[in-house]
Design a binder for these strands. Sequence first.
DNA 1: CCTAGTTAGTATGTCTCCATACAGTATGGC
DNA 2: GCCATACTGTATGGAGACATACTAACTAGG
Lengths: 158, 158
Amino acid sequence: MSMSSHELDAPPWLRVESTIMATARAIRQSYDQRFSDLDLNLSEASVLAYVAEHGALSQTQIAKSLGLGRAATGALIDALEGRALVQRQTDPDDRRVWLVEITIAGKELLEEVYVRDQILRKQLRNGITRQERQQLAAVLVRLGNNLASVLAEEIETT
Amino acid sequence: MSMSSHELDAPPWLRVESTIMATARAIRQSYDQRFSDLDLNLSEASVLAYVAEHGALSQTQIAKSLGLGRAATGALIDALEGRALVQRQTDPDDRRVWLVEITIAGKELLEEVYVRDQILRKQLRNGITRQERQQLAAVLVRLGNNLASVLAEEIETT
DNA sequence: CCTAGTTAGTATGTCTCCATACAGTATGGC
DNA sequence: GCCATACTGTATGGAGACATACTAACTAGG
């Protein structure tokens, strides 16, 4: 993996963006590999975990919480439902919405997901202190806020 | 932007991954917006800047330095060449390779790119100290190394 | 009521990238 | 020289996500 090979010679903005981008890709990839024999990718596992923790939720709620669009979320739930890991129920109060719940089979699979997540996280934290991780998260959040205002401002101006 | 809305309620691994992922997406998006009236996206601008700085390069060299695959890089160069921002020249020493160089028009466009990059970077750095940025980069590199070894190990085991 | 506006979920097209496979070309051992 | 190997650039198919547009259904104002 050429993670750090383009640290010195690339143009400045690319350093930030491509490092973050490459890291994000690699995280996704490592989870996908660890989950591959469960036939789950990271997004599917995330939906499963989120639904397990929060009970019957609409797809829009799930999408918002996971930072995905509604279309992408719907596709994920299609896949999970096809394997009977979650089930859709009609909402008695609103005939537009599906309430998504985890099934017994889903819970069982999720146990294995948790185990592997723990192992992988331990490997990824190697050589990175708790304080550093917290700082990383804090800086990323601030960066995210700056990005949000940049993007918002941009829309105004247009 | 729901950058921080899923900070507290999402499952743990998702916090790290999705924060990084969302940040990367947002960075790309903000650059794309700032460059949109130049008809450039971040990757194209990166290729342009990299070629401007390092002169005639093979596509493989460019790909490696930018952390992209050769196919994706080729497509980017196709687009830039179609707009006469770069030009391909045959390598007298190796008939397989294209040597890619920036054109006058490319250099002119790049000036504008640099100006906008400076402005955007200043906005993104808002409230983040130089030290924090360096630490962010350092932690990301370490995380990247951990990811690389995880992915490598995974291949061995398979 | 009933009409206008909003929201839930879905379908579709696009974007950006990767992985794989391929054809043409170099290179190093024999 | 010759062959196996490695490498360059391209074509193709797929993954993952977005934006847009659409249908169905809810809701609030008149």
